[in-house]
Measured scan of single mutants.
Amino acid sequence: MDVFMKGLSKAKEGVVAAAEKTKQGVAEAAGKTKEGVLYVGSKTKEGVVHGVATVAEKTKEQVTNVGGAVVTGVTAVAQKTVEGAGSIAAATGFVKKDQLGKNEEGAPQEGILEDMPVDPDNEAYEMPSEEGYQDYEPEA
Protein backbone atom coordinates (compact mmCIF):
# COMPACT_ATOMS: atom_id res chain seq x y z
CA MET A 1 0.00 0.00 0.00
CA ASP A 2 2.90 2.36 0.77
CA VAL A 3 4.34 1.77 -2.69
CA PHE A 4 0.98 2.61 -4.24
CA MET A 5 0.63 5.82 -2.17
CA LYS A 6 4.22 6.82 -2.94
CA GLY A 7 3.55 6.31 -6.65
CA LEU A 8 0.42 8.48 -6.49
CA SER A 9 2.34 11.15 -4.61
CA LYS A 10 5.05 11.23 -7.29
CA ALA A 11 2.42 11.40 -10.02
CA LYS A 12 0.76 14.31 -8.23
CA GLU A 13 4.11 16.12 -8.00
CA GLY A 14 4.56 15.61 -11.74
CA VAL A 15 1.14 17.05 -12.51
CA VAL A 16 1.82 20.05 -10.27
CA ALA A 17 5.19 20.63 -11.97
CA ALA A 18 3.60 20.39 -15.43
CA ALA A 19 0.85 22.82 -14.44
CA GLU A 20 3.44 25.26 -13.14
CA LYS A 21 5.42 25.07 -16.41
CA THR A 22 2.22 25.66 -18.40
CA LYS A 23 1.36 28.63 -16.19
CA GLN A 24 4.87 30.02 -16.70
CA GLY A 25 4.57 29.59 -20.48
CA VAL A 26 1.25 31.42 -20.57
CA ALA A 27 2.72 34.24 -18.47
CA GLU A 28 5.68 34.52 -20.87
CA ALA A 29 3.36 34.56 -23.88
CA ALA A 30 1.26 37.29 -22.27
CA GLY A 31 4.39 39.30 -21.53
CA LYS A 32 5.60 39.02 -25.12
CA THR A 33 2.15 39.99 -26.38
CA LYS A 34 2.20 43.07 -24.15
CA GLU A 35 5.67 43.93 -25.46
CA GLY A 36 4.42 43.64 -29.00
CA VAL A 37 1.36 45.81 -28.38
CA LEU A 38 3.52 48.51 -26.78
CA TYR A 39 5.84 48.25 -29.77
CA VAL A 40 2.90 48.80 -32.13
CA GLY A 41 1.79 51.84 -30.13
CA SER A 42 5.20 53.46 -30.51
CA LYS A 43 5.44 53.02 -34.28
CA THR A 44 4.69 55.66 -36.87
CA LYS A 45 2.14 55.29 -39.66
CA GLU A 46 4.61 53.40 -41.87
CA GLY A 47 5.66 51.00 -39.15
CA VAL A 48 2.31 50.00 -37.70
CA VAL A 49 1.55 47.25 -40.17
CA HIS A 50 4.97 45.71 -39.57
CA GLY A 51 4.46 46.12 -35.81
CA VAL A 52 1.19 44.17 -35.87
CA ALA A 53 2.99 41.34 -37.67
CA THR A 54 5.70 41.47 -34.98
CA VAL A 55 3.06 41.06 -32.25
CA ALA A 56 1.67 38.01 -33.99
CA GLU A 57 5.11 36.51 -34.54
CA LYS A 58 6.28 37.04 -30.93
CA THR A 59 3.07 35.54 -29.63
CA LYS A 60 3.39 32.58 -31.98
CA GLU A 61 6.97 31.99 -30.77
CA GLN A 62 5.85 31.92 -27.16
CA VAL A 63 2.85 29.71 -27.86
CA THR A 64 5.25 26.93 -28.82
CA ASN A 65 6.43 26.91 -25.18
CA VAL A 66 2.94 26.20 -23.89
CA GLY A 67 1.50 22.71 -24.04
CA GLY A 68 -1.90 21.08 -24.20
CA ALA A 69 -5.25 22.78 -24.43
CA VAL A 70 -3.78 26.07 -23.24
CA VAL A 71 -2.28 26.57 -26.71
CA THR A 72 -5.70 26.99 -28.26
CA GLY A 73 -6.71 29.64 -25.71
CA VAL A 74 -3.43 31.53 -25.98
CA THR A 75 -3.67 31.53 -29.77
CA ALA A 76 -7.20 32.95 -29.62
CA VAL A 77 -6.15 35.62 -27.12
CA ALA A 78 -3.12 36.52 -29.23
CA GLN A 79 -5.24 36.86 -32.38
CA LYS A 80 -7.73 39.11 -30.58
CA THR A 81 -4.84 41.17 -29.20
CA VAL A 82 -3.41 41.65 -32.68
CA GLU A 83 -6.84 42.62 -34.02
CA GLY A 84 -7.26 45.06 -31.12
CA ALA A 85 -3.83 46.57 -31.76
CA GLY A 86 -4.80 47.14 -35.38
CA SER A 87 -8.07 48.77 -34.34
CA ILE A 88 -6.21 51.05 -31.93
CA ALA A 89 -3.75 51.99 -34.67
CA ALA A 90 -6.64 52.84 -37.02
CA ALA A 91 -8.52 54.79 -34.35
CA THR A 92 -5.49 56.90 -33.48
CA GLY A 93 -4.78 57.67 -37.12
CA PHE A 94 -1.46 55.81 -37.33
CA VAL A 95 -2.76 53.72 -40.20
CA LYS A 96 -5.79 53.66 -42.51
CA LYS A 97 -8.36 50.93 -41.95
CA ASP A 98 -7.78 49.54 -45.45
CA GLN A 99 -4.11 48.93 -44.55
CA LEU A 100 -4.95 46.69 -41.60
CA GLY A 101 -4.44 42.98 -42.13
CA LYS A 102 -1.75 43.45 -44.80
CA ASN A 103 1.99 43.19 -44.52
CA GLU A 104 4.48 45.61 -46.04
CA GLU A 105 4.12 44.02 -49.49
CA GLY A 106 0.32 44.39 -49.33
CA ALA A 107 -0.37 40.67 -48.90
CA PRO A 108 -3.10 39.69 -46.43
CA GLN A 109 -1.89 38.70 -42.96
CA GLU A 110 -5.01 36.85 -41.91
CA GLY A 111 -4.42 33.26 -40.97
CA ILE A 112 -1.00 33.75 -39.38
CA LEU A 113 -2.10 31.94 -36.25
CA GLU A 114 -5.09 30.02 -37.58
CA ASP A 115 -2.95 27.84 -39.87
CA MET A 116 -0.64 26.81 -37.04
CA PRO A 117 -1.12 23.07 -36.36
CA VAL A 118 -2.41 22.69 -32.81
CA ASP A 119 -3.66 19.58 -31.05
CA PRO A 120 -4.92 20.18 -27.49
CA ASP A 121 -4.48 16.48 -26.68
CA ASN A 122 -0.87 16.43 -27.96
CA GLU A 123 -1.66 13.29 -29.96
CA ALA A 124 -1.00 14.26 -33.58
CA TYR A 125 -0.36 17.30 -35.68
CA GLU A 126 -1.74 17.99 -39.12
CA MET A 127 -0.20 20.29 -41.67
CA PRO A 128 -2.23 23.34 -42.77
CA SER A 129 -4.37 22.92 -45.88
CA GLU A 130 -2.62 23.24 -49.21
CA GLU A 131 -5.34 25.38 -50.81
CA GLY A 132 -3.15 28.48 -50.76
CA TYR A 133 -0.06 26.72 -52.12
CA GLN A 134 0.98 26.67 -55.77
CA ASP A 135 3.03 23.98 -57.44
CA TYR A 136 6.54 25.12 -58.19
CA GLU A 137 8.13 24.07 -61.43
CA PRO A 138 11.75 25.16 -61.88
CA GLU A 139 12.71 26.74 -65.15
CA ALA A 140 14.86 24.55 -67.41
Rank of each mutant, 00 (worst) to 15 (best):
S87H: 08
E114I: 14
A56P: 05
P117R: 04
V70F: 07
E123T: 13
L100E: 13
T59F: 15
L8Y: 07
E28F: 06
E105M: 00
K12I: 12
Q99T: 09
G7R: 12
S129E: 10
G73V: 10
V77Q: 03
L38S: 02
P120C: 05
A90L: 15
M1C: 00
Y133M: 14
T72R: 07
T92E: 06
E105D: 12
G73W: 13
A89T: 11
V82P: 04
K60A: 07
Q24H: 11
G14K: 10
P120H: 04
M116Y: 09
Q99A: 11
V3R: 15
G31A: 09
K80L: 11
A140I: 04
V37Q: 00
A89E: 04
A29L: 09
N122L: 09
S129M: 11
K45D: 00
G84Q: 13
E20S: 06
P117K: 05
Q134G: 12
E20M: 06
E57P: 04
A18R: 00
I88N: 00
K96E: 10
G68T: 08
M127P: 03
Q79K: 07
A56N: 07
A140E: 12
I112N: 11
G106H: 10
M116E: 02
T81C: 12
A19R: 03
A27Y: 14
N122G: 08
Y133R: 06
T22W: 05
L113D: 09
Y39F: 14
G132F: 08
V74Q: 03
K102W: 13
K21P: 00
V70M: 07
E104W: 06
A89M: 12
M5D: 00
M116D: 15
E46G: 04
G84C: 00
Y125S: 14
K21S: 11
T64D: 05
E126K: 12
Q134D: 12
A89W: 11
G67C: 07
Y136A: 07
L38F: 11
G31F: 14
K45R: 13
T72E: 15
E123L: 14
D119L: 03
G25Q: 13
V63T: 06
G31W: 15
P138Q: 14
G51C: 14
V26D: 00
H50W: 13
Q134V: 08
E83T: 09
T81E: 03
L100P: 01
A140K: 15
E126P: 14
G101C: 15
V16N: 08
A11R: 01
T72G: 12
K10T: 10
N122C: 11
T92V: 08
D135Y: 12
N103G: 13
A124D: 05
G132T: 10
E137V: 14
L113V: 03
Y133C: 14
E139G: 10
V40A: 08
D2T: 04
P117E: 10
K23I: 03
L113Y: 05
E110D: 06
N103R: 14
V55P: 01
M116I: 08
A29I: 13
K102R: 01
T22D: 06
E35C: 15
P117D: 07
P128M: 03
V77P: 04
S129V: 00
E83W: 03
A30C: 06
